[in-house]
Design a protein around this nucleic acid. Structure first.
Lengths: 199, 199
DNA sequence: ACTGCATTGTACCGTTTAGTTAATTTATTT
DNA sequence: AAATAAATTAACTAAACGGTACAATGCAGT
């Protein structure tokens, strides 16, 4: 039951945000009463926090299952970009939760402490790739792992977060199967190119 | 008065979204009553639509004031990227409104018809730059203006939209003055590099 | 002074909302 | 089988909400 509520809540919060979702909406999706939500999670915000926390930890867990160490640095980076792009696409609910959090200036995310630890791992991984690449002279010396992560995130995140408005404004040719494949190839190219020394 | 309401509403909707903002919130910000909002805009959604429409048209108008035709194509592209990056940064309310719209799957933006026309202008401008660059052999032949616009938007948009969560997760070193300057230089580099033929 | 119109204030309505009280059923332990 | 704890239901509260009815005000033109 608790798990059912969490699942339904994640979907509802992702679709309509914290304020836009009523506890009734969530209760009606599954076969339960509003009361149960308060029983398990105290209040609406408590549920929201739990949804957010779970979403983050499950995402980060999946991200850690890539083993890129030992690979050719450029190949490792390529795989990381491709994975991030695909992963964001597959987890649009998570993306939407993050969008909501940003509208709240991350107010609720600040309260989740488990965050900082897992996030440093992502940067560590990228740092190892960068160091390996620099040692081989195939990465520019001035590449900052954090900036690189920002760049990969931006391209992968925006693809999902702004799908609706971008499609309305410019048509959905970038959101067909072919369009997405082309975009994916393009951002891989773009990221790899940007770390490569200019002869 | 009408203008006051629009200004206050824009700020409130940007900060808390459509559902998160009450008509009272808006009325209290300026010296007026809820009644006036309904008088001028019919209902809350009507006000929201108007805010959205105005925000978009004023943004697009500013974007059009760049005259890049005739410039060196790479220089033109560089200026466009820099402008977009700065412009998004300066107009964070607009960014937040777009974020909100994406959470609603662009439901309200679909109803604004003035959109498609202004948006094609952005792409046309980029198409001219690309064509000039290709003619001189300084742009890759396979560069798609729409993809390029997507790329520039993604990097500039994400920088603002995800400032809160990114800072929480990875520290705010990218959001200091120096960090932003470095980021700006980096994405210019990245975009220019990605359109340049490899040899 | 009168008319017409845009603007504002007040009071109200019905609905939805988050959250609670308390009783009841179900499951678990002793 | 009794006792105890966990899970669930139903009815309720109080406040906030979007929206409306209607009267009142101010101000132009005639």
């Amino acid at each position: 039951m608790r798990a059912d509520i969490l699942r339904a809540a994640k979907s509802e919060f992702a679709k309509k945000g914290l304020a836009g979702t009523s506890v009734k909406d969530i209760a009606d999706r599954i076969q339960t009463s509003r009361r149960m939500i308060f029983y398990y999670f105290g209040d609406k915000e408590g549920l929201y926090r739990k949804v957010l926390e779970d979403a983050y930890s499950s995402i980060r867990q999946a991200e850690m299952e890539l083993h890129l160490d030992g690979l050719d640095p450029l190949e490792a980076l390529k795989r990381l970009v491709e994975f991030t792009f695909d992963h964001h696409w597959r987890n649009s609910d998570f993306i939407r939760l993050v969008m909501g959090e940003n509208i709240h200036d991350g107010h609720y995310m600040k309260q989740i402490k488990s965050m900082h630890e897992t996030n440093t791992k992502v940067i560590d991984q990228l740092t190892r790739i960068c160091n390996a690449g620099k040692k081989e002279g195939r990465f520019r010396e001035d590449i900052e792992p954090l900036q690189l992560h920002w760049e990969i995130s931006a391209l992968s995140f925006f693809n999902v977060s702004n799908k609706a408005t971008f499609s309305i404004n410019f048509g959905d040719e970038l959101y067909t199967d072919e369009g997405q494949a082309a975009l994916r190839a393009r951002i891989v190219d773009c990221v790899l190119c940007s770390v490569t020394p200019k002869t």
